[in-house]
Design a protein around this nucleic acid. Structure first.
Length: 569
RNA sequence: CGGGACGUGGCGCAGUUCGGUAGCGCACCUGCUUUGGGAGCAGGGGGUCGCUGGUUCAAAUCCAGUCGUCCCGACCA
């Protein structure tokens, strides 16, 4: 294509609103424009990259036998009520009422609709099936951010596997895992597969594909030694043995003004944090619950939500704490509390000689024996792992990494098929619900992740696989007829080889062309100028290395064809 | 939802404290010169200052409300 005819509105400066690297560079390079928060227009350049990402995903899905569908983006509320997500999902689900007064939803994923279609699978003989689509999803995110990383409408490849039993599901799941590894390799994204929470979707075997990046929103724990990797939402670590203090008797003591763990460490009669109990008053779907942790440990909210199955988890307000426990935060404890559910982290199991709030402002207990003094209802891992703690598997120090979630696969089981009535007959003639898996990759998010990983101070540095163009031909002097002729010939020849080539035939100065070519990140630039041309040569510059080599003009096509098509294979 | 910042030509910003009818850089248009790293000179077009209401002779500027955007946290298939 000819640059002079394309709409590529490059910007010297990025809008003040753009913060994330992918955001500023995609805006400056003329790939995207924001319409409003969480909604972006893909401009021609952005769409080209988007489609190349989608094509890679499509190719690898088809390679595992997946069939492409296109389902409606808008659904009747009825199927969401059947699956239970109408209630379970909450405000993230876009809901709208049509002229007849009927409730509708804009799909955030398509388990319900695919399960509806899957009702027509009636025999185990038709299984397994893997179905996918690349379709727009809508999510009323509380806070869109990071350019294309977190938005309210976006294209997602979602696939669903249908099997007659768990063994079949395992096999479909593994096929997806391998397909995803190939997809991310093709995109040039270094991913780490981690154990994850399946959140509101329900299911098990939840695995996320994470790209380490400071622009990400998830933290993972990673062991370089044994390969243990988990989202912090469910990561575990070993806990060193502790010797309890010898304080056999429960004692109330005054602690005027002491409101924090840290303050309690230094006050007379206090205790270091490891000898304290942290009492978090939480409200789970409206029910007040106490979450107990060792003083130096932090609560991982998602673990609490996963364990209890609660959809809405929040800390109690100070007023609520006062109402239920009789004191304000800072003096709260679970000793002798009978009427509230108490969930306790295993780090406190069997511990004695502990210090905790006495549920009266300015008073604490010491000598607390968890087994003797606290009516624990549930023991559940609730603590958030911290960097450098020993790996739960091998004991080596864990690393904590900020990551972008590039893909997510998990085993749904029969939740949706049972709810929506998608049953088949098995080989014994017995009716059985389809066993489903669900697998997602956000196209735009992966585009953004590539941009986050591949850029430099001059702009984007697209891997060839997703670059908007493979090659840009930069004509330095448009008025030079020899240059023009050479450029046109080369342009046609490269097109004939199936290479995506952009001819920069704009009447602007060389510096502008160089800067723009670098900004939009085309992997290879052919510079056609009088200097080299006088010797029958052109220059080929590699964007990623900034290396330039001279090439006789007659060999350019062959040379580029070789490097471009070699990488594409 | 809590905290913070901000809305002035396409983009980046100044002007707001001490009201007087909008300015700079980039971009854009025309001409001449220039032509291997975001050119120079000259001329020119474009905004009523997010929106609504109020105060005032007079509001970008003061007051109230409202909408929107970004960041941190909360939350988040």
């Amino acid at each position: 294509m000819r640059w002079s005819q394309l709409f590529i509105p490059t910007l010297r400066e990025a809008p003040a609103d753009a913060q994330a690297t992918n955001h500023t560079l995609l805006i400056r390079g003329g790939f995207i424009r924001q319409l409003h928060s969480g909604h972006y227009s893909l401009l021609p350049l952005g769409l080209r990259v988007h489609e190349k990402v989608a094509a890679i995903v499509r190719r690898e899905m088809e390679a595992i036998g997946a069939q492409e569908f296109l389902l409606p983006a808008m659904h009747p509320a009825e199927i969401w009520k059947k699956s239970g997500r109408w209630q379970a999902v909450g405000e993230e689900l876009f809901r709208l009422v049509d002229r007849k007064g009927a409730d509708n939803v804009l799909g955030m994923t398509h388990e319900e609709v695919f399960a509806e279609v899957a009702k027509e699978i009636t025999s185990y003989k038709a299984l397994p099936q893997i179905w996918f689509q690349i379709q727009w999803k809508f999510r009323d995110e509380p806070r869109p951010k990071g350019g294309l990383l977190r938005v309210r409408e976006f294209a997602m490849k979602d696939s669903y596997s249908f099997d007659v039993d768990e063994a079949g599901l395992d096999s479909s799941f593994d096929a997806h895992r391998r397909a995803y590894e190939r997809i991310f390799a093709a995109l040039g994204l270094p991913t780490i597969a981690v154990q994850a929470s399946s959140g509101a979707m329900g299911g098990s075997g939840s695995t996320e594909f994470m790209v380490p990046s400071p622009a990400g929103e998830d933290d993972i724990a990673l062991c370089r030694e044994c390969g243990y990797a988990s989202n912090l939402e469910r990561a575990q670590a070993q806990i060193a043995e502790l010797v309890d203090r010898d304080l056999p008797d429960l004692m109330r003591f005054p602690t005027p003004g002491v409101r924090t763990i840290a303050a309690l460490e230094t006050v007379a009669g206090g205790a270091t944090a490891v000898h304290q109990i942290k009492t978090m008053v939480m409200v789970l779907d409206g029910e007040v619950t106490l979450a107990l942790l060792r003083g130096d440990h932090e609560l991982e909210l998602q673990k609490l939500a996963d364990y209890t199955g609660a959809a809405d988890v929040r800390p109690a307000t100070p007023d609520e704490a006062l109402k239920w426990l009789g004191a304000h935060p800072g003096s709260l404890g679970a000793v002798h509390v009978e009427d509230l559910r108490i969930i306790c982290d295993p780090a406190l199991r069997g511990r004695r000689g502990l210090t905790t709030g006495a549920n009266e402002d300015d008073w604490h207990f010491s000598g607390v024996d968890v087994a003797r003094d606290i009516a624990v209802d549930d023991w559940a891992d609730l603590r958030r792992v911290k960097a450098a703690e020993p790996c739960v598997v091998c004991g080596m120090p864990l690393e904590v990494l900020r990551c972008i979630e590039a893909g997510h696969i998990f085993k749904l089981g029969t939740k949706y098929s049972s709810a929506l009535g998608a049953f088949v007959l098995d080989r014994n003639g017995k009716q059985t619900p389809l066993v489903m898996g669900s697998y997602g990759i956000g196209i735009g998010r992966n585009l953004a992740a590539v941009a986050e990983v591949y850029h430099d101070d001059k702009g984007l540095v697209w891997p060839l696989a997703v670059a908007p163009f493979d090659v840009v031909i930069t004509i330095l002097n448009l008025k030079d007829a020899v240059s023009r002729r050479a450029s046109e010939t080369l342009y046609q020849d490269l097109l004939n080889q199936g290479i995506d080539v952009l001819l920069d035939d704009r009447g602007v100065r060389a510096g502008v062309k160089f800067a723009d070519a670098e900004l939009i990140g085309v992997p290879y630039r052919v510079t056609i100028g009088p200097r080299a041309l006088a010797e029958g040569e052109v220059e080929i510059t590699t964007r990623s290395t900034n290396e330039t080599l001279r090439c006789p003009i007659g060999l350019v096509v062959e040379h580029l064809n070789e490097i471009v098509n070699k990488q594409k294979r």
